[in-house]
Amino acid sequence: MGRPLGVVTLLALAVGLGAAFGWAPRDAVQGNVQRIMYLHVPAILTAYAAIGVAFVASLAYLRGRDPRWDRLAHASVEVGVLFTAITLVSGSLWGRPTWGTWWTWDARITTTALLFIIYLGYLLLRSVVEDPERAATYAAVVAIVGALDIPIIHFSVEWWRTLHQPATLLRPQAPTMAAPMVATLLLNLAATLCLYAFLVRRRMRLAVLEAEARARRWR
């Protein structure tokens, strides 16, 4: 059962939110609206992790055709798409008051939207192909190729001119951020990663039950 993980996740989320609103200082330039960062950045990093897991699991599935790897990839993509959606929505809500626009087609935002569409396509593909094994194989290929978008998203702010600012955390030098803000970001990242693991476990449990029901029907 996912009980202990659920409890840890709930605690981590409470600590993270507490830090984001009760401890981290207001930003000198942006004011309090910068607190959206403690949702926006952990959400996209968790989405990267989710797609990364799906990438590895899909490779493993194609090698040995073990349905457990496929269930991990599928669950991971579902939760990853969810976190990508949260990244796009929170980014939009952050961009409107600070940049002055809800949306713009700069390279960072466009490639992130592309990630969302690719993995939405992954889920659509799974729901359309009837034979589960064929669906799993096609989907694994999409998951592996689609993951190439992540390095493109990451380096987009360095390769091209964008409205989006460069990376604060994932950079070779020290973060360009006050220490309590970095700590708050890391706490929230830990919380969203726990939440990711929790949701993936529940989704895989559901997939196991569904596979069992399918097997019984065939008997």
């Binding site: 200082p25 600070t98 626009t101 600012q165 951020m177 803000m181």
Partner: peptide, 12 residues
């Protein structure tokens, strides 16, 4: 007009 901000964050 869109404002471009830096990747630096610090308290006032």
């Amino acid at each position: 007009i869109m404002a471009k901000h830096s990747e630096e964050y610090h308290p006032p």
